[in-house]
Structure formats: C-alpha cells, structure tokens
C-alpha cells in the first residue's frame, strides 16, 4: 500500500485516491498546431524514477493533488494541492 499524505486530510491509503497522470503537461493555446496538441494529449515522458503526477482524493476530500513519487520504488517525496492558491491556504492553516 502506498500512503499519500493529503494536505487536507492527512496520511491515507492510496486506495482512497484515483491516479490522474503526468502533472507536468502544459496544454498549448487553442490555436496551436495539431502537432503540439497531439504531443500534449497523446505523448508522455513515461519517467522511470521520480515524477510529478496528479492524484484525486476521490474517496476523501475530492481535491486534486500533485504528488512527487518514484515509479520504481513508489517512495513519495512531496504532496501538494494542484492549485497554487490552495497551496498558500494550506500553508497559512498550518
């Protein structure tokens, strides 16, 4: 079991969460070329090692999180709210 330390709820089993995917994708502007959109939607770095990825606390607070996790050892280095402004709120509440 992977334990994810949700900034809102505390440390929980990963079975409470749903895996999203690569958190580093930057979607291009609406008038960008098909090539750029294809790259953003379909192509992935598929990192072997630490990566930033999104998880949804679907059976908890239902917030989206950015987790830095190793895809080899499953060790987690950091967990943050997806939205930067919510990150500030989380820090102020500590």
């Amino acid at each position: 079991m992977i334990r994810i330390n949700c900034p809102y709820c505390g440390e929980r089993d990963h079975s409470e969460f749903s895996y999203g995917g690569d958190a580093t994708i930057n979607y291009p502007s609406l008038d960008a070329s098909e090539k750029e959109w294809t790259e953003a939607i379909f192509f992935r770095k598929n990192i072997k090692g630490f990566q930033f990825e999104t998880w949804h606390h679907s059976n908890g607070c239902r917030m989206w999180l950015v987790v830095e996790r190793s895809t080899v050892t499953h060790e987690i280095k950091s967990v943050k709210p997806c939205h930067p402004n919510l990150q500030k709120v989380a820090e102020n509440n500590k």
């Binding site: 079991m1 992977i2 089993d13 990963h14 079975s15 749903s18 895996y19 995917g21 598929n46 072997k48 990566q51 990825e53 895809t71 080899v72 050892t73 499953h74």
Partner: peptide
C-alpha cells in the same frame, strides 16, 4: 494497479 509504475511487484488493493 491503476497507477503508473515500473516495479515488478503488485500492490495489495
């Protein structure tokens, strides 16, 4: 297992 991984070992859920 529903999350990306290169580990050749499964998880309990």
């Amino acid at each position: 297992d529903w999350y990306k991984s290169y580990a050749q070992r499964g998880n309990l859920p």
